[in-house]
Each structure stands twice: as C-alpha cells, then as structure tokens.
Design a protein around this nucleic acid. Sequence first.
RNA 1: GGCCUUGUGGUCAAGCGGUUAAGACGGCGCCCUCUCACGGCGCAAUCCCGGGUUCGAUUCCCGGCAAGGUCACCA
Length: 545
Amino acid sequence: MDLEKLASRLIPGEFPPLETYEKRYPPRDLPANAEVTRLAPSPTGFIHLGNLFVAIANERIAHQSGGVLFLRIEDTDLKRKVDGAVEAVISALEYFDISFDEGAEIGGDETYAPWYQRQRAEIYRAYARALIKKGRAYPCFCTEEELAALREEQTANKAITGYYGKYAKCRSLSEEEIYAALDAGKPYVIRLRSMGDASHKFTFHDEIKGDVTVTENDQDVVILKSDGIPTYHFAHAVDDHLMRTTLVIRGEEWLASLPIHLELFDVLGFRRPKYGHNCSLMKMDGASKRKLSKRKDPELSLSYYRQEGYHPHAVKVYMLTLLNSDFEEWHRKFPEKPLEEFPFHIRKMSKSGALFDLDKLNDISKTELSALTAEEMLAFLRAWAFAYGSEPQRAYFADEAYLLKVLSLCMGIGGKKRRKDFVTAKQALSMIGYFFGERVQEDAYRVDNATRDAVLQAFLQTYDASDDAQVWFSKVKEVAASLGFAAEMRDYKADPAAYKGSVSDVAEVLRIAVTGRANTPDLWSIMQIMGEEKARARIQSCIGA
RNA sequence: GGCCUUGUGGUCAAGCGGUUAAGACGGCGCCCUCUCACGGCGCAAUCCCGGGUUCGAUUCCCGGCAAGGUCACCA
C-alpha cells in the first residue's frame, strides 16, 4: 500500500517537515533541574477546588525549581466551550495567587504559542500524517452505531471493550476498501495502530504514586476526530512535547489512560515527560466518600470562597496542608514566612484521596485572618464588601478611623491579643453590625422585663462615660448588688440560692441593650467606641420595651 | 464486571520490624473570666479482616474485604 499517497489523501494540505516544528519550539533554555509544568483546563468556565489543588502543586514545583508554569487551553471539544471562560480561570487563580509565566491570555513569552489547541490544528495534523506514513495510524470508517454494537457484543462476551486486535475492523482494510470508502465520502477518524499487548505489564514510576503496575496499551485509540481535531490524548503528546513540558501533574482520573499516552510519546519519537497523578478531593456523603461534585457541592466552586469572603491566603494554606503533610508544622513554626519559602516536594504528596474538611479550613481561616495587619484587614474587608456586601456594609468604610477602632476591639487587629472568631469577611462584617446603624435585637433577655428595666435604669443613673474599665465594672457590680444579684462570681458560686443571679446576668442585660447580642467583646470598650450618646440612647430605648 | 490505586482515631496525618503509636482539626471536660473569643490544662477515640514470615508485626508476604479511579470521535 502506498502510505505516502494515503496520508496525503487522508490529511490533505501542505505540511512542512516535522523538524520545522522541532525548531520552531526548541528545548527551553533553563537550569538543569528546572521543571516546566502546566495547567490545561478545557474552557468550560467552571474552575473548582480540585483545579486549585493541582494548580498549586504545579505552580510550586515550577517556580521553586526555577522553571515555568504555563496555561494551555484544551478546547478540542466545542461542546465544552463557554465564552469568557479563559478569563474566568485566570482571574479565579489569580485571586489565589497563582500566576502563569506564559500561556493563553497571559502575555509573557510567546515562543511556544499558540496556547489554544484549536489554533494548533495544523501541527497535530502534520504529526498524524507522519504516523500514517509510518503505518502507525490508519483511517477508521466505523459509525457510532457500529461502535456501539461492538461494545455490546464485547460486553455480552465478557471481552474487554474497545477498538483493538481482532475487533479493530478498519485496521486491516485493504487499499481498495479504503479508497472506495473515501470516494463514497464516508466520514472517518484517524486511529493509532497500537503495537502494544495488553497481557504485558510493566512498572511505571509515578512521581506521586510511586511505582505503579500498568498494562501496555493495545487500543487503537482515535487520535484525530472526524472534524480533523485531535483527541485529548494526541494533543497532550504533541503539545507537551513541543511546549517542552517536563512534569505533568494532573488528576488521578488520567492514570488509566497513561499507557495510551506512553505509547503515543514513543511512536511519535518524543521523550516522555515525568508524570504525577494526584488524587481528587473527596467529600463525605452519608457513609461513603465521593468526589466533590459540581452539582451537589457549592463549596467545590472557587467562586464560592470568594463570595463567602474566605481569605485567599487561608484557602491556599489549607490546600498546602493537604498537599504536603509537613507544611502545617512548617507554617506553624514560621507563620510570618511567605508561603513560597516552604520547600514543597512532590514526593510528599499523599497517595490517597483526602476528604475536604470544612472545619479545618474554617479553623485555618480564623487563624490567618487574625494574623492580618490593620491595613490588610481593612483592604480585605473593603474588597469583599464592595464586591459582595450589602449597601449598609459598604457604608462602614466611610469612617475608617471608627471602623479601625471597631476592628481592633472585635478582631484584636493591631494588638497582641488576637481574637479568632471570624472565618470570613462576610461573617466579620455581619458581626460588627451593631456598631453601625440602628440597634437590632438579636438575642433575647433571660430576665423578666421588670428586672431588665430596673437594671437599665440603675445603670443609666450611675453611668459616666469617662469612667475607666475598673470603675465602670465596679459600678455594674453595685447595680447588681442593689438589685439582689451577687456582685462577685465567687459569692454566687458558693451559694447560688442566696441571689437572684450574678453580675454576669446584669452585664448580659446591659450587653443586650447596647448591642442586641448576648455575646460580644468587652462591653466597656464597646461603649467607649460607640460613644456615650449612642450607648445611652440604646439603653434608654430598651427600657419598657 | 475487567484493570489500576489506596486502606493508622470522626477528619488530615507522622511513624515503615521492638514506640506510652507524634501532631493538627473536630468532640468532651476543667481553668481563666461580666458574656463571647483568645489562652492554658486534660480526656475519649486509631493501626480494615484472616493467614503466614519472624523471638517480635501497624510496619514484610499472601488472601479476603472495603473505598476510589477508569473502561467515548469528553477532557
């Protein structure tokens, strides 16, 4: 059979010799141990935690080694394309401080462009044509129906499904048959003529999983679809070779198709990159683990964390603690060191899938938020408020000096005594709401109205905004004593029956009157910040209510 | 179902032939305290099961079991 002629017929057009591509995309001039990694999402616009997880690993390894991280868009499937997706991916990752050195819409070095696979169609076709010439690829005219029937037959016979060996009908089509089909205008795909034997196993070293046993590929996989666009497998081999990727870190779901990729690299004469397959983030669903799902789990989406007001740094810290088991200890030891200084190691990545633990994230968030400087906190809250907050919340930022005082009290900002009760910007802003606007009754009094009024009235008479905390509290104690409450907790605990309650009950009444809440930071400080006028007005308004 | 991978407290996990089997989150209790938060102290809770190998297995081997992944002209 004249393969040269067949190749030109199957993939018409003028193509430069393959060396041209090798020259156009030369090996990168990088230090010996530098790794070139990439992120290769399809443009669905949906970017999730799992993507971030892999992105952080790729980013750390590339940049830590003095290498390159690039962004390639796998848009070979038109059905997946969504407008604005690429920008969405970049912006979502940027929020978490993942920056690319080059790639789609990135700018940077364009040597290895284009970064959209659809724009590289000619390259794939050139390599596919070369494969046909070598007899390592052939046209397949099977229809979807025929393929489905094949599958059914195989399933019924308990044979392995797929297009391989004796089931690969078009593999042995004669020259006449091929040209007849072509002349009849039948659509066709180009398949790899696999030389593998599925009964042969070999061990492959995965950078994350260690040595894994894999079976040789014997599937005549499609490399060019009937529209002339490559499948993922083929594009992966061609692109990662030409873009000079050295390390492919990707989801575990790709491990099963690794043999295909390996055969493709080999038959194309490419040097294989290193691979690291990492497990997906799981979630507890009833009694069993399952992959985080786009439909069921809003927390899977990266935009969820932005909207909720999680600090990006906190999310990154959490991802890192899952990514490298000794990160947590390191970060605890050097909380002020930039994350980039952590010696990230691919070997320390877990082999098994981790459950996403919201409690842990929340704990980390609290700690990270409490470590922000006043300026950082202000900037963070403001950014959130103006993007996702309410109108009244935005108004908090009108008087920054006042806001700062509130934050310093409620979050310990600027002081040594940190408070860690806020997980997100959303929560923080809603928790300081009582300093602004009208009083909102959020918690109920636990004493009867008469007692409440008595406490409030007595306090108002003795209240003096110039009192310091000590004096202020001793006055509260006096009010307590005069109304039958124990002034000292010690006394109350010794003999609860002798009193109506304790100072704590009295303080609670005041606290609810001033803030609407039973639990707040130090009440004296709150009243100081709020100012006498407002504090008095609020207490007054509660009497007889 | 075939193939691959993984199996240490509820979760993330160190440990990889002899350990009181780290640590963190969560839970519970106590202390501090006008409430909350912070902080301090403490408690409960783990080596999937069964066989080997060995003086000795969480660690090694085999077999189960369970969980996850994958079997497209989707990535």
